[in-house]
């Protein structure tokens, strides 16, 4: 199976503290992280807050400048879906503008083609083309998250990094969004790196799972194997806490 993402021996640091006299401390947030995401695969990433999940997703997207190791992704750059559909859409712009932005950045389509692509995708995510002129403030949380997902999909990436994409939504909307993610995966041949603290969600949609603790991957493997026969003590604690 072809891999859309390969990460090998990744170490990453944040700079922190005041830059007084030019001496900033470096704090290591990722330690020797290695994993891969295959084409068409949904890989879950679990761990408590502060375990380095978000740092890892930022590194994959190329937003962490200070790292060592290899991050290789095939074809187009990976795209991101955030947890909070209220802050991930700029309130100053219309839905159409927001969806066109990745296309404009890619610079491959003219204005009419971009609008056509936006209308098509809006139909696909179940909102309809006339939503292009609406503002994010006119949409519900679930509708906003659909738009965020559409904005990630529209540039035709191979990999989408979804950081807690359903945890801000209520349960029925969660199910709809998970279904939408699964549909889009088939239609656009996507792979997901799916970050969640909700082990039920991971169980439902992921084929493999990575367990992170203190910046290290302590366990990884097929979801059934990791959840049924956890080898690491920390994984057992997580499973016990989830009930």
């Amino acid at each position: 199976m072809e891999n859309v993402l390969e990460v090998r021996g990744l170490n990453a640091w944040y700079e922190e503290g005041p830059a007084l006299f030019g001496s900033r401390r470096r704090r290591q947030v990722l330690f020797d992280v290695s994993f891969s995401v295959g084409a068409g695969e949904i890989v879950g990433l679990v761990g408590e807050s502060g375990s380095g999940k978000t740092s890892l997703s930022r590194a994959v997207l190329g937003l962490l400048p200070d790292y060592e190791g290899e991050i290789v992704h095939r074809s187009a750059r990976p795209q991101m879906v955030f947890q909070d559909p209220y802050s991930s859409l700029n309130p100053a712009h219309s839905v159409g503008w927001i969806l066109e932005e990745p296309l404009r950045a890619a610079g491959i389509l003219d204005a009419a083609q971009r609008r056509a692509a936006v209308t098509e995708l809006l139909e696909k995510i179940g909102l309809g083309g006339d939503y292009a002129s609406r503002r994010p403030s006119q949409l519900s949380g679930g509708q906003r998250q659909r738009v965020s997902i559409a904005a990630a999909v529209i540039a035709k990436p191979r990999l989408i990094v979804a950081d807690e994409p359903v945890s801000a939504l209520d349960v029925t909307v969660q199910a709809q969004i998970l279904r939408l993610l699964a549909e889009l995966k088939e239609d656009y041949e996507l792979s997901y790196l799916f970050i969640s603290h909700d082990l039920n969600v991971i169980w439902q949609i992921c084929s493999r799972v990575l367990v992170m603790k203190e910046g290290r991957i302590v366990e990884q493997g097929p979801v059934e194997e990791v959840f049924d026969r956890p080898r690491h003590e920390y994984t057992r604690q997580l499973l016990a806490a989830a009930g």
Partner: peptide, 10 residues
Amino acid sequence: QDYIRTSRSR
């Protein structure tokens, strides 16, 4: 805000 990070990642 997240929308800046999103746009930056694109």
